[in-house]
């Protein structure tokens, strides 16, 4: 049994080891003209900022994957909510707090719809969210007439409230605000997973749905809650995204669902359900972000970057998989 523990520990640390390797390699290969462009604090913070959006979505995705489901609609929710919050601020004249709250509520309602279709209509999450992925994207484009809504900050009509600009600022000029939001949310949801009865129920349902049901757990309610939280988190990421590019665009967030799944998978969350941690997801998201950064610094063709990333995901998931049969 001790050996199992050691093995499990090494397996857990696998992604950390990968993270360290990528970090060390990157530190060496990104030196140009005597300057280390990777280890530069500004660059590090850029990585962190870039990781935040995917990371926040991946927090929600981790919960969904633990349940043994999947949510493919999060990328479209990013498009919908980034458009929506921009519209609410610029065209409806909503202030910072009302705009943020409405955005999260719209996102939550969307997740509620996902959850209800899955539990009450007994449909597979894959199919439901594949459909709602199109629905969200369509609503976003219809809402904004297919074009982005630029954000200019100010107090006049047609301008976004200056408070929203906080989302693209850096604390003390160094630490990006999105990164702080990400870390706070991550710690909060890690606490939820490991210390609450909600977390226990997520793992139990993902581990054995029927057994959980027979143990008196309200499976439907937990599932719906998880989908609501997942879409809400995607909405938070959407607002950060809008602030970062100073625009709410209906075509933003394409492919984000897969980046989120990739971060979870690299971090050791099982797509079969019942297994996964937020810390793993954090490491997965950082590995992905660092890789993007290094490949960018090395000036590698962005299409080739996709290829490298794809292979990395296969390797990571292969290493995480339980190879011992029986």
């Amino acid at each position: 049994m001790d050996k199992n523990k050691t093995k499990a520990f090494i397996k857990q640390m696998q992604s950390v080891i990968a993270l360290i390797i990528i970090f060390v390699v990157a530190s060496f290969i990104c030196v140009k003209d005597g300057r280390n462009r990777f280890l530069d604090i500004r660059n590090m913070m850029n990585v962190l900022r870039a990781v935040s959006e995917n990371g926040i979505i991946a927090i929600g995705m981790t919960m969904i994957l633990i349940l043994g489901d999947i949510d493919l609609s999060v990328g479209s929710v990013v498009g919908l909510i980034s458009t929506g919050c921009a519209y609410l601020m610029v065209h409806s004249g909503l202030g910072f707090v009302p705009a943020v709250v409405s955005s999260i509520l719209i996102g939550g309602a969307f997740g509620f719809f996902n959850g209800m279709c899955i539990t009450k209509l007994h449909l597979q999450a894959f199919i439901v969210t594949l459909a709602t992925m199109n629905i969200a994207r369509g609503i976003a484009r219809f809402w904004a007439n297919g074009i982005g809504i630029p954000l200019a900050y100010g107090n006049e009509p047609g301008m976004a409230p200056p408070a929203f600009e906080v989302l693209q600022m850096r604390l003390g000029g160094v630490v990006p605000v999105p990164a702080i939001i990400f870390i706070v949310l991550l710690l909060f949801f890690q606490l939820i997973l490991s210390k609450t009865s909600f977390g226990r129920q997520l793992y139990a349902i993902g581990g054995n749905r029927q057994a959980s049901y027979l143990a008196g757990i309200n499976v439907d309610r937990i599932k719906v809650t998880a989908f609501v939280l997942c879409s809400m988190l995607a909405s938070v990421a959407a607002m950060i995204h809008a602030a970062q590019i100073s625009q709410g665009g209906p075509n933003e967030g394409i492919g984000y669902e897969l980046n989120a799944v990739a971060a979870c998978a690299i971090g050791g969350t099982s797509l079969a359900g019942g297994k996964g941690t937020m810390i793993g997801t954090l490491i997965g998201a950082i590995i992905l972000g660092m890789l993007d950064n290094v490949l960018g610094l090395k000036g590698i063709n962005s299409n080739l970057q996709l290829v490298v990333k794809g292979f990395l995901i296969i390797i990571a998931v292969f290493l995480q998989a339980d190879k011992v049969k029986n």
Partner: peptide, 28 residues
């Protein structure tokens, strides 16, 4: 098939029907 979540611990499996009793404000 219908009794246990095999990937979870003995304790977690045993507590399943009693999560309410074992938690205060949702915290275990």
């Amino acid at each position: 098939g219908t009794g246990l979540a095999l990937q979870r611990s003995i304790g977690e499996n045993m507590s399943l029907p009693l999560l309410k009793k074992f938690s205060t404000f949702g915290f275990m």
